[in-house]
């Protein structure tokens, strides 16, 4: 078995809750089958932080809430042959996008100044240059880069992810049974 011939997979959680990654882990013992046929590249699963090789498939959890997310997503687009939006946040913006109808200044004010549990006597907002800048609105991944496939669900079930991955890896059409089609 040589690593060079196995297709590589990268995964990332942008503005998500890691629930989609948890769901991926929920494929349980099939994880062993998976690593037989693929290698994980950049991913929180193996803690590789930068791309080591070009990848066949990139799985993106979460939408883009800040400039860092946008930057990472663009890196994924550049380094992956097939880019897949996983879950509602990647696909639609999801729960983080609930803030979208509220101006950013108001959101930050409530989070850092006026919220009921906030203690911030100086009233400063986090402005360090190292911190990502929030986007005016959380946006789904396909509004930032081209996305090849969208997997729905909050999170997509382990079975859904398994079926999608095995179909993509074997170059087959993704055809989910009705029960696996869920936006929630």
């Amino acid at each position: 078995m040589t690593t060079a011939v196995k297709p590589r997979i990268a995964t990332v959680s942008l503005a998500g809750c890691f629930g989609c990654h948890m769901s991926l882990l929920d494929i349980d013992e099939r994880l062993l089958d998976l690593v037989e046929i693929v290698d994980f590249d950049r991913s929180p699963i193996d803690d590789i932080k930068t791309f080591t090789h070009r990848c066949a498939i990139g799985l993106v959890e979460g939408g883009c809430a800040n400039d860092e997310n946008v930057h990472v997503l663009e890196e994924f687009r550049e380094n992956c042959d097939i880019l897949v939006s996983i879950g509602e946040c990647a696909r639609t913006g999801g729960i983080p996008a609930l803030r979208n109808s509220i101006p950013l200044a108001e959101c930050l004010d409530e989070a850092y100044r006026s919220g009921p549990t906030v203690y911030n006597p100086t009233g400063t907002l986090p402005t360090d240059e190292e911190l990502p800048l929030l986007l005016n609105r959380v946006v789904p991944c396909h509004e930032v880069v081209r996305i090849d496939y969208h997997v729905m669900g909050c999170p997509p079930s382990a079975e859904t992810l398994w079926q999608v991955l095995t179909a993509l890896l074997s170059n087959e059409k993704v055809q989910l049974p009705y029960e696996l089609i869920k936006y929630d």
């Binding site: 663009e74 101006p103 907002l125 402005t127 800048l133 929030l134 005016n136 609105r137 946006v139 880069v145």
Partner: peptide, 26 residues
């Protein structure tokens, strides 16, 4: 030109007082 990051970060830029550090590279 891809994604308009400058426009998308305009509110945060005004609040933080500096533009996105990913902007130049973009």
């Amino acid at each position: 030109r891809g994604f308009d990051l400058a426009a998308a970060t305009s509110q945060a830029e005004a609040l933080a007082g500096h533009p996105s550090r990913h902007l130049e590279k973009e």
